[in-house]
Amino acid sequence: MSLTAADVVEIMQLIEGSSFDELSLELNGMKLNLRRGSVPADGSSSQHSGAVATPAAAPTPAAISPQVAATNGTKASPGVDPSLHEVTAPLLGTFYLAPKPGAPPFVEPGSLVEPDTVIGIIEVMKLMNSVRAGVRGKVAEIVAGDGTLVEFGETLMRVTKSG
């Protein structure tokens, strides 16, 4: 068993969500050293929280309905390309496209993904949960904004299925 790039990303996220600054891992002759570097004193996760864009409560119920409808699972409306897969939020929380502020995003439009590719993270009370693509294909569109609150079932991105 060896570590894949995705595993390393996941380990990094675990550290992000923990109170540890450093991790040394030895596995089958492989050595991994991770250290929080050039991180502001208050830690990166609280910086994440600070950056959360908080949508204001919509003034009327009418403004809610379309949003609610849009989160209605993966059922594509008529006319939508059936080869498009909607990656939806597995839980409510703050969605991040990158493992930490300033870091390159997990994926971008055009990125190739496998079912287990991490496409983003959802933070719930400082706990980081990785979100996986669920299909093999190419990222067509990123729908949810970085640092925004996403509801359960809300569409995060669309992936053009392949294979």
Binding site: T54, A58, V68, F152
Partner: peptide
């Protein structure tokens, strides 16, 4: 004024999740 979807029907995955409730309250 706003309804926010916190999870699937089963209470243990929605209405009984303390972290989700607090995150949703804070996020809104």
């Amino acid at each position: 004024d706003r309804a926010i979807c916190i999870g699937p029907p089963r209470p243990s995955e929605s209405y009984l999740r303390v972290e989700t409730i607090v995150a949703a309250a804070r996020g809104t």
